[in-house]
Design a protein around this nucleic acid. Structure first.
Lengths: 346, 346
DNA sequence: CTGAAAGCGCTTACAG
DNA sequence: CTGAAAGCGCTTACAG
């Protein structure tokens, strides 16, 4: 008991607590008990005398006392907060994953701290470390940094879970099998008679992009009669829009966007140019974001439930925090959703 | 200096720090200096002897020491974290606002903690208080709780900024002028000859919905010759889809969705029913989410830059934290974006 | 059932 | 320039 409220007030400037700002010491003094007892009452320990507990609760109400989570975190050694780091908060795919993580983390009593690396791989390690220092664990979505950097980072930020990064590292992973997905999409298009298909590549170094390459290579071997073209593009509507003329110039009858955003950009560009989809050109995406079914024409795409991916990432992380053993990456196989943006080739 | 690392390890179970887990005490011991000196070096205070500082830095690197943000927060009395509370993380409008807040908060050295009230007004106050206790301040988007509850909550969670809630309370506010927006949209439709228009209402109790009512009332007085119908709906694609038949049954020539999601749901339902938009029916939305321009037909809507709303909310909150005075709510006037989903009435 | 004390990992006025 | 000490606001083994 080293100082009353007034004395404390003047000690440090710039306190950022609510104006009520009562501390456990204030409550203890007002109720005439020790801080330990207040703590016990606040935490519902049954060993407190009923009358005393009641008195403490009354004082708590009067003073509007709320325990400081920061102090609790320091004392307990955990924050009940988890970090989610994504390359771009403006990307609906990451928004869905975030939503899924938040839902399940909240159900488990955790809050979510978000961070956005703005698609800057060099900033990722420092960002992840910073977020990790404020939280009990982190979920990192689609990190763009290279394998060595990631490997060096991991031990510094455990526990960590990885989404869409499937190198065999010491961390639980949930991955969308993009390679199998793009292969299935190709088979669908080939089955409809397409013989020249252009794939709009995603961000360089992204895990999904590497997986696509593997899928495309497999299809190339499976179907030597089919010409698979690749074009550098990206992951946004605008990038899809910008690459349209180039894609068109390949003479392909079908365009596979790296994701739905890219495909939607392509659709928009096609409309601008008077190219009729799917009559003149088939266009497909990847992810099945909520708007894929609303585009004109409705977009054929590979569907993966990204909210569930987020929930799964949380569960994997939670298991890790409890010290449970891994049993390999959790793989989501995308499923084909045929809609109206694809026509057979005569 | 009360214990070495080994001793500490056994004191409490369940530490959630990275395995490196060095503390300032470990560094101080290894470098043969006091913790104060380590702290000074870490914080770049220029008063430390160069040789000593260098020695400390070397030890820091060797041990992989990173200061605990939790301990810093407790000591400094601030977390450099701001909370953002939204009714639904799955709603693109809130995602955009979140994105804007995150961008500007990050630039100012703050991290963002998100929370989702799952459109449950009763849970909002407790949620906001909880988030506030982990952060230095909060931004609350479109709170659904009633005015009295909000008024009672505010003093407990200062500093707080409000988005889309324009009661004159003691908190900086940034609001979208939905009333003026819907009025402008109505005038646009009326100018094109529409005489019976149905408005699909948003969530009961939402600020935007109340503002819409005021706008619709004003239009009703301005244009007694026009029939304005209202239908309870909501704020999601599915709710827009579900209310379509009812809206159609009103015999209106134009439907105003509470937001773009609702309007997109309406568009989808129209397609399902074989109703041609805009030929048979005009449909408009509100917000101009990124997908509004990509729908079929492209959606006429009222545009508001929600990322900028988020950025503005952050700046308003930042000003408040610095103790600056308010000069009234910051109002965003939505602007009409005519696209392809509206036709004149013959 | 209750309290004094130590501890969580930092920061910073204060004294040298 | 540097360190001992006090403090941030909690929790909990320990002793009574």
């Amino acid at each position: 008991m080293t100082g009353g409220a007034a004395e404390r007030m003047t000690r440090r400037p710039g306190r950022m607590r609510p104006s009520s700002g009562a501390t456990i010491t204030d409550v203890a003094q007002a109720a005439g008990v020790s801080r330990a007892t207040v703590s016990r009452v606040m935490n519902g320990r049954p060993t407190v005398d009923a009358a005393i507990a009641e008195r403490v609760r009354r004082v708590v109400d009067e003073l509007g006392y709320k325990p400081s989570r920061v102090a609790q975190s320091l004392s307990l050694g955990r924050t009940s907060t988890v970090g989610v780091i994504v390359p771009d908060l403006g990307n609906p795919s990451f928004q869905q994953i975030l939503h899924g993580v938040n839902r399940s983390a909240a159900a488990a009593g955790y809050r979510v701290l978000v961070a956005d690396s703005a698609e800057t791989p060099d900033d990722e390690p420092a960002l992840i470390e910073d977020v990790r220092r404020r939280t009990d664990a982190v979920i990192v979505c689609s990190p763009r940094m290279n394998a060595d950097t990631l490997a060096a980072l991991l031990p510094r930020v455990q526990p960590i879970a990885l989404v869409n990064r499937d190198e065999p590292v010491d961390a639980p992973r949930v991955v969308v099998d993009s390679g199998a997905g793009v292969a299935e999409m190709c088979r669908h298009l080939i089955g409809l008679g397409h013989r020249r298909i252009v794939h709009l590549d995603g961000p360089v170094g992204s895990n999904a992009q590497a997986a696509r390459l593997r899928g495309l290579t497999a299809i190339g071997e499976e179907h030597p009669e089919v010409e698979l073209v690749r074009l550098p593009c990206g992951s946004t509507i605008d990038e899809g829009h910008a690459v349209f003329d180039q894609a068109r110039a390949t003479g392909s009858t079908a365009i596979i966007g790296f994701n739905d955003l890219v495909a939607l950009g392509v659709l928009e560009a096609a409309r601008d140019r008077g190219v009729r989809v799917p009559r003149d050109l088939s266009v497909v995406g990847f992810d099945d974001i909520p708007f894929a079914r609303l585009s004109s024409p409705a977009l054929t795409t590979m569907s993966v439930d990204l909210e569930e991916v987020g929930e799964t990432a949380w569960r994997a992380l939670e298991a890790r925090m409890k010290g449970e053993e891994e049993d390999g990456p959790r793989v989501f196989a995308p499923v084909l959703v045929p809609r109206a943006s694809v026509d057979p080739v005569a």
